[in-house]
């Protein structure tokens, strides 16, 4: 396009060629997007549509399911399983708060104080991922087993009395109680909290701490007014990465809880795989998805992080 020294006779033939090349160039980004879009269509959009249609079907496994636009399944599913919904949100919210409480100091330490140990500590944070989620949760079953060292220690330290009073454990056991499930969730999702927290803390220029100290801020005020606000993108990302999967999780409740600790993930799993009531399972999945979307939207709006990034 730079060689515009063409005669008027040539321009008639050359101009289309140039624009064709330009058009091809413009299309490059779309070609690059194509594999990703294909993947999404095949593995996300298509199953979603299929699921949506399943949720409004009626019938039975023997006679086959038909789309009858039976939206009552949603209402029925919600009325029948709302305790599990609420429990899921409560467990996962508690686990998220615990993850934040445990993860923030650790991420802070790694980002600002660890010096040459920084990389090693980060490896240790990620290390649990080298074992499968299932095995790690099963390990917790052993750790918290009745009469095991952890439970007896908690008992002799009278911590179990406190947790019993709070209603999160029962009698002389931890397994098959809300405490066990929340502990499992907290443990399993902790790295998802630490990684984004670390990333956002690590990006903070340490000179900002010096500047705050120089401007009469005590270390605590520096944290409140500078460090914490600047780490908000990490806090938001970390809580979302913990809360969203934890709400839908069923392994922890399955392995560490009893029937009284069933979360919505367990219900969906059993509806799909055991009861074989596909419409109810699909409807529950959609309700869960909608509920999480609504909560997350509200949360992001309130924390107003787009200003920070």
């Amino acid at each position: 396009m730079t060689t515009t020294a063409t005669t008027s006779a040539d321009t008639g033939t050359e101009a289309p060629a140039v624009t064709a090349a330009a058009r091809r160039k413009k299309l490059v980004p779309y070609w690059l997007l194509l594999p990703g879009i294909l993947w999404l269509v095949v593995f996300f959009a298509a199953p979603l549509v299929y699921q949506a249609s399943t949720s409004v079907q009626t019938g039975s496994l023997e006679e086959g399911f038909k789309v009858t636009w039976h939206f009552a399944t949603y209402a029925d599913a919600l009325t029948e399983y709302y305790p599990q919904f609420l429990r899921s949100v409560a467990y996962s919210a508690t686990a998220t708060v615990l993850c934040l409480a445990l993860g923030y100091p650790l991420a802070y330490l790694i980002a600002f104080k660890a010096g040459r140990w920084r990389n090693l500590l980060m490896v240790l944070v990620i290390a649990p991922f080298f074992t499968s989620f299932l095995i790690r949760t099963l390990a917790w079953k052993t750790i918290l087993s009745d009469g095991g060292p952890v439970v007896s220690a908690l008992g002799s330290l009278h911590i179990l009395d406190v947790t019993n009073a709070l209603g999160v454990t029962e009698g002389h056991r931890v397994l098959a109680t809300p405490l066990a499930v929340v502990c499992g969730l907290t443990y399993n999702f902790l790295p998802f909290m630490i990684l984004p927290l670390y990333t956002s803390l690590e990006r903070i220029d340490p000179r900002l701490h010096e500047a705050a100290g120089d401007l009469y801020a005590t270390p605590l005020t520096t944290f409140r007014k500078v460090t914490f606000p600047l780490s908000m993108p990490g806090v938001v990302a970390g809580t979302l990465l913990t809360f969203i999967p934890a709400t839908g999780d069923y392994i922890n409740a399955e392995l560490l809880g009893s029937t009284d600790q069933k979360m919505i993930g367990n219900v969906i799993q059993s509806q799909f795989l055991r009861v074989l009531d596909y419409p109810t399972a699909a409807a529950l999945s959609f309700i869960l998805m909608a509920a999480i979307l609504a909560m997350v939207t509200l949360y992001i709006r309130k924390s107003g992080t787009e200003d920070l990034v």
Binding site: E210, L215, P229
Partner: peptide
């Protein structure tokens, strides 16, 4: 004395302005 107790202020090499605060709040910080 720690920095926050000394009657001095510093203009840092890369300014170290607080990115989450506006100019007004940056200046009002001290």
């Amino acid at each position: 004395l720690p920095p926050h107790k000394r009657p001095v202020n510093t203009v840092f090499q890369s300014y170290a302005l607080f990115p989450h605060l506006d100019i007004y709040e940056n200046v009002a910080f001290g």
